[in-house]
Amino acid sequence: MKALPQRSDLRTVNASGFRLYLQTELARRCSHNRQYSLRSFALQLDVDHSTLSQVLRGKRRLTTQMIEKFGRRLNLSQEDIEAFVAQAELMKSGKTVMASMAQQLTLDAVQLLSDTRHQSILELLQLEYFRPDVRWIARVLNTAPDEVNIALSRLLRLGLLEMATPDRWLDKSDSLCRDRNDFAAQVIRKLSEQVRKLSARSGRR
């Protein structure tokens, strides 16, 4: 038996998947339009800008009603809105393992959005001469094998990577979307998918 990917964090932190989505969406809009601001975003969401500011900073809890309202205002699909609501419900539930897993996935997504090595690994997979070897990846990215393994674990948990066989690693993201903002959107979508699966498993309990 070789490496066994693990959940890496069960701490309770204030990391909401939908808050992460809002932060990412605001950053995306600001990068596309220099005039865009928190007030613009608040107007779009039909909420007071100070309230939105508190939500984004984790100073105010996102209620189910807020997730549903903001999700609709941002034209999210009903399926995605339900996934974010399910995650919030999991966090509040007594099902601590499931809540921890939802938390873990959110933390993974945060790391994927803040550390470009994750995207770099997926880009390497596209190369004809890619070698499914952590030591090779570490050399190419000028980092330590342990750092690569931590990044691989996150990509696996979020479903952005599949190790089908020892020699065949599959990029499960949309390989055509290599723009940073598009990648961020994909991470959020994968987070939503994984939470939906988690919620479905939780519902069967």
Binding site: M1, Q6, L156, M163, T165, W169, R201
Partner: peptide, 22 residues
Amino acid sequence: IELGAQVVIPPQKLPDGDEMAV
């Protein structure tokens, strides 16, 4: 699950061919 367990990591195949779950 019937006996009260919860799945942390669903079944997955590792690069070396092993299957695991937590």
